[in-house]
């Protein structure tokens, strides 16, 4: 614990600091931006941070890319996290494209891609429905 603020700890975990910053930036954008498109961008940043966490995890100091060279003393980086994250990247792309597709549809239906406006329209619709309902009940009485 005592070396928590030592330069070795801070610089030795440089990659982690960067991921944390990137990840939090992404998450912050998702939470704070009202524009649906920007949210997707934030989500992408957020995911990219995780991809890089995995990739840096597989790096072995002094290791090369995991391609057989015939040299028995060769040190390889761990390829498994890279492969795993390849899957995650594919998933991420699918998510992004689906998100964008939804945004297009939302824009067509609502005429806006601002979250608070979409929300306001939703609530307006709900109020209208309830008002219509009350009218109907009154009429039947």
């Amino acid at each position: 614990m005592d070396n928590l603020f030592s330069s070795g700890f801070i610089f030795g975990h440089m990659n982690y600091w960067l991921f944390v910053v990137l990840m939090m930036t992404g998450l912050y954008i998702v939470v704070s931006r009202g524009n649906l498109l920007k949210k997707v961008v934030g989500l992408n940043l957020f995911q990219a941070a995780v991809f890089m966490l995995y990739i840096s995890m597989g790096k072995v100091a002094g290791g090369t890319a995991p391609i057989l060279t015939g040299n028995p003393d060769e040190v390889y980086s761990n390829p498994l996290p890279h492969v795993l994250i390849l899957t995650a990247i594919v998933v991420g792309i699918a998510t992004t494209s689906l998100g964008l597709a939804l945004i297009v549809r939302i824009n067509e239906s609502y005429g806006t891609i601002e979250e608070d406006e979409v929300l306001a329209l939703d609530q307006q619709q709900e109020r209208d429905e309830l008002a219509a309902l009350e009218e109907e009940v009154l009429k039947s009485k």
């Binding site: 649906l36 939804l102 945004i103 549809r105 939302i106 239906s109 609502y110 979409v118 939703d122």
Partner: peptide
Amino acid sequence: KRALSAAY
């Protein structure tokens, strides 16, 4: 149309 914002 609210299904869209819900899905999003």
